[in-house]
């Protein structure tokens, strides 16, 4: 069964059609790339899936459940996490505090117990902190755990953003430009970690402009333009698609510099 399924999903902003009618199916364990020229509606699709903006038409299914009208926090609770395009962090907290906050869902202690900080709460908090530290280690940030998030270098901020999303213990994660603004070494490291997410059983849908990174990492790629799907398939299929080439020739650079 498909993990994530978009049926006929669309969004209009006034008279502007941002996303027309998108059908998309992501299978469990897949790393799916979502590409398209600037302004083609990729981030809007993320916002539609995660409930940040209500769609004008169509529906979103996650694990067979209709999540179209759920608010963002409810979507996150069902195991669908996301990151944001510009590094979005709790800038005045340390890296560790960020991830601890992101583990919010797993504290599973009522408000009353949180207030009194009962022994159980404290035990849970310790466990959460331990888990957060593990996640930071996984993203290669352990030694920076106590630095303020806002003062970290760009690459680490991106990594922290992913750690935050991972902390919600997702079944699937949507990454919005995970390697934007990174140098080639950082990019390679990050893409390597994204591949390792699959080993943890996490399905990935990512938007990225760095074609080399997308082509080398993703199992399948979906290309959209002007809010419409224009191609789907393996890296090779998408590269050879006439529509994709045209879409990108109209834009800034060639797609397939593999």
């Amino acid at each position: 069964m498909a993990l994530l399924q978009l049926k006929n999903l669309g969004k209009d902003f006034g008279r502007l059609v941002a996303v027309n009618r998108i059908d998309l199916t992501v299978e469990p364990g897949e790393i799916r790339g979502l590409i398209g020229p600037n302004g083609s509606g990729k981030t809007t699709i993320f916002n539609l899936i995660t409930g940040f903006i209500p769609p004008s038409r169509g529906s979103v299914f996650f694990q067979g459940e209709d999540i179209t009208d759920l608010p963002p926090h409810a979507v996150a609770r069902r195991g669908l996490a996301r990151t944001f395009q510009l590094t979005t962090l709790f800038k005045e907290m340390t890296a560790l505090e960020n991830v601890v906050m992101a583990c919010h869902l797993h504290l599973r202690v009522g408000l009353w117990r949180q207030f009194w900080r009962t022994a159980r709460t404290r035990r849970r908090e310790k466990a959460v902190e331990f888990r957060a530290m593990e996640l930071l280690e996984f993203m290669g940030m352990a030694e920076r755990a106590n630095e303020l998030a806002g003062e970290l270098p760009h690459g680490h901020q991106c990594a922290l953003g992913i750690s935050n999303a991972l902390a919600t213990n997702p079944k699937m994660i949507l990454l919005d430009e995970p390697v934007g603004g990174m140098n080639p070494t950082e990019t390679a490291q990050t893409m390597d970690r994204i591949r390792r997410l699959r080993d943890l059983g996490i399905t990935v849908l990512l938007v990225e402009h760095d074609m080399k990174a997308v082509m080398s990492t993703c199992d399948r790629i979906t290309c959209i333009n002007f809010g419409n799907k224009i191609a789907e398939g393996t890296a090779r299929d998408v590269c050879s698609s006439q529509d994709v080439i045209e879409a990108y020739l109209g834009g800034t650079s060639g797609v397939c510099s593999l």
Partner: peptide, 28 residues
């Protein structure tokens, strides 16, 4: 007490970044 509890931390997280809080499952 409230300020220093998890609840207080969650309040502050929301004021720092409401969208991120939502995406992490916090009912803002």
């Amino acid at each position: 007490r409230l300020d220093r509890s998890r609840i207080g931390h969650t309040f502050k997280a929301i004021s720092m970044n409401a969208d991120l809080s939502r995406s992490l499952g916090i009912n803002v």
